[in-house]
Amino acid sequence: MSDKSRAGGAAEPRRPRTPSAFLKFVMAVSGVFLLLYVVLHMIGNLKIFFGPESIDEYAAWLRTLLEPALPYGGMLWIVRVVLLVSAIAHIWAATVLTLRARRARPIKYAGGSHKVKGSYAARTMRWGGVIIVLFVIYHILDLTVGVANPNGVHLEAYNNISAGFAPDRWYITLFYIAAVVALGLHVRHGIFSGMQTLGWSSNSREHTIKTVATAFAVVLTLGFISVPLAVTFGVV
Score class of each variant (00 low, 15 high):
S2C: 05
R6C: 07
G9N: 09
P19Y: 03
S20F: 05
K24G: 10
S30V: 01
L35T: 06
Y37I: 01
M42H: 08
G44T: 00
L46V: 00
E53W: 11
S54V: 10
I55V: 06
E57Y: 13
A69R: 09
Y72W: 04
R80E: 07
V81H: 13
V82L: 14
L83N: 12
A89V: 01
H90W: 04
R100H: 09
R102D: 12
R103M: 08
P106S: 08
I107Q: 09
G111A: 00
S113P: 13
H114A: 11
V116T: 14
K117T: 15
K117A: 14
K117S: 14
S119G: 12
M125P: 08
G129A: 00
I131W: 11
I132F: 07
V136E: 09
L143P: 04
A148H: 02
N149L: 01
V153G: 01
N159Q: 15
S162P: 08
S162G: 08
G164E: 15
D168H: 14
F175E: 13
F175S: 12
Y176N: 12
V180R: 04
H189M: 10
G194V: 00
M195K: 07
Q196I: 14
S204V: 15
H207A: 14
T211E: 01
A213V: 00
V218M: 01
L229T: 07
F233S: 05
